[in-house]
Design a protein around this nucleic acid. Sequence first.
DNA 1: CGATACGTTGACGGAAATCAACCCCGGTGG
DNA 2: CCACCGGGGTTGATTTCCGTCAACGTATCG
Lengths: 246, 246
Amino acid sequence: METIHPHTAALIRKLESLAPLAPEEKAALLGLPLRLKTVAADQDIVCEGDRPSECCLIVEGFACRYNLTGEGKRQILSFHIGGDIPDLQSLHLRVMDHSLGTLVPSKLAFIQHDALRSFMRSHPRLGDLFWRDTLIDAAVFRQWIVGLGRREARGRIAHLLCELLVRLRAAELVEDHVFGLPVTQAELGDALGISTVHVNRVLQELRGENLISWRGETLQVLDWEGLKQAGEFDPTYLHLVKREAL
Amino acid sequence: METIHPHTAALIRKLESLAPLAPEEKAALLGLPLRLKTVAADQDIVCEGDRPSECCLIVEGFACRYNLTGEGKRQILSFHIGGDIPDLQSLHLRVMDHSLGTLVPSKLAFIQHDALRSFMRSHPRLGDLFWRDTLIDAAVFRQWIVGLGRREARGRIAHLLCELLVRLRAAELVEDHVFGLPVTQAELGDALGISTVHVNRVLQELRGENLISWRGETLQVLDWEGLKQAGEFDPTYLHLVKREAL
DNA sequence: CGATACGTTGACGGAAATCAACCCCGGTGG
DNA sequence: CCACCGGGGTTGATTTCCGTCAACGTATCG
């Protein structure tokens, strides 16, 4: 098993969207020991109740964190893309209080907690940056709460699409307001606390207003200003350094 | 202005609920330079858009974080009690993406970011513990999302009451399943995405089933098992070390 | 003693859940 | 080759949880 990989490229890009990186910091990141793995769609990476000893970096793909309730309903807590480390919190919280799974076939890279800890000791500035990343994670949760508590279906969907566009653009996965959204309407509903049927109706509404078009797995934002307005979207909470074209 | 205070007692108790502390660590915490302040009820401590240079430790009182939407609706994001540092995230996120305000007259203690940063450099284990605290914060957000997305009013209220009971017990503010809850029904509604009217009805339901009694600012949990069941409450997500009597 | 904040109650309406079809499409296998 | 199947999307009918409106009770306070 190799221990040095170029697969940290996505991670470096992600971290650079949060703060500028010095060349030696990027070099250090390239030295992180990774265990690579390719997984199919709809596979659990970590499960609620697990006590993982490593974190999962998404190199390529699409994943989500979720919780299951008593009646078998699923609540999706967040979506994750290349460069994200969705279970970074496991470094300091022994037990997983939710699960993490893929939505499409994905390339993952696992980093041992020990390796991460000693890495952050030798690079405290990057340690702080990882902390910052988990704090932004929490900020996204807060916005999600606002949506679930105070916005109706239309606003929730619009807001989520705005958020994904901005995050995917930071990951350089958006071309001309078009991006791949490999998510079913049922999954959208599980994320936004809306039934599949209603998700469908609202999407048709948004399409009818020419705010978006969504064919297959390709989503195009036709009216960025209109969509932002529909979702009351303000990207401040994502705390990105590059704020152009928001 | 004094620089050494015994007002860190609440903080120490809080941190001890997350991980055991060594005597020298407690001593170090007592040396944190604090700026004390007493504020009335319903006062903002920090506002959305601010760029604070200090964090706020709640010594005594009750506070909440909240967001206002376009139509002036308020979404409360979390409740905070003695020992909490609700805006710890401002250490690494320059701009506040939400506001923080008191619910009752409270004693606050402000700690300069610089002081906190240098403190954590000299006490890395405590630095990690602060990080852990913000991660638990995020875990609480996740549970709120599950509640807002997947539980109906009854379950949301029950879950919130369970959470408050457990957290207040960790802060040694619960005696015999009785605690002070200085929150109006309107505020409960703003926290749970429910209208005041409906909060009222559900509370009557819970009282009618003899799960709780709530007179004035005193809440008594009459049927702990029943309330936990009503809210599908599992305290794992709070990641407390003392897990007795949950 | 009004004023104000909070709690309570009833009537009505609406956003969205649920139930139940049905369509379309790609895969698979007899 | 085509029948069958399953997942995802679409649509309509019906139900329900909860919001809104509006009124009234109650307690605290200057």
